[in-house]
Amino acid sequence: MKMRSVVSINNLSKVYKNDFRALKNVDLDIHKDEIFALLGPNGAGKTTLISIICGLVNLSEGNVHVEGYDIIKNYREARSKIGLVPQELSLETFENVFNNVSYTRGLYGKAPNPKHIEKTLKELSLWDKKDSKINDLSGGMKRRVLIAKALSHEPSILFLDEPSAGVDVELRKEMWQVIENLRDTGVTIILTTHYIEEAEAIADRVGVINNGEMIVVDEKESLINSMGKKTLTIELHDPITELPTNLSNLDLKIINNGKSLNYSYDRKSKHTGITSLLQSIREAGLKLKDLKTEQSSLENIFVELVSKDNS
């Protein structure tokens, strides 16, 4: 089934005044109601990409449509669909939480609606802080205020630029819950992150960007399945210092001070080689203590993709 695209990016390039080419002919479609994670190392072009979509940075080439509206020609319609949570905690520090959030709603052309602001603040556990000055809030609360501001005008698309930057583990998980709840209410989420764990935990699809180029865009699961390798860890009863001769031509690594062996294999391949490996181990006279298999994480895939792209 063809998914409806809510953000459509075509041949997008950005060259800054210092001739730095931050984005190179990027094409990308974001589907309705998905959580899309844009992964990439620092300086890869993630923030530039979402800043262009949100109107903070001018594009050099290409075009972007949000819900069918061109972000330049129909900027009012396009921007009114978008909520943005920036990476930096950029807030007016002397204003209180309620006024801060209401201000953003006004900027987006919506009539004041204290009930909606109240609902948003309650959902983000900020209601009891509504009269507090931004200055008096913790970093995590400021991050939530930014989310509340971005949701103040009831957008259908929410951009989160590095939502977990500088956030502790507990709050990060709380934030993931908030993001998933939002998706359930019909908000499409696009987040940039360099925490693979974040993409792995909540994203439906993943795009990997490096040096301004989109190197892969795929469903998270199929990316892991198609590119991920499995690892078999064989724990030995007695440690070894070198591989027995009948095992030396296999793709085996001695780890854990000789107490374990690692064997990588492609689980989709017809012959994984596990049966003959176990046979050879028995022939070599090694005693097994334990066996375990592990699917390679998105992190391994990401590192592999980026290093391949860099080389």
């Binding site: 949100c54 109107g55 903070l56 900027y75 009012r76 319609e77 396009a78 921007r79 009114s80 978008i82 943005l84 920036p86 930096e88 950029s90 807030l91 007016e92 520090t93 201000y103 953003t104 900027l107 987006y108 052309g109 501001k149």
Partner: peptide
Amino acid sequence: FPKYSGSIYEVLAAPI
């Protein structure tokens, strides 16, 4: 002031 604090982003990103 909003330029200095960074909060100018919301004015620039708004449909205005």
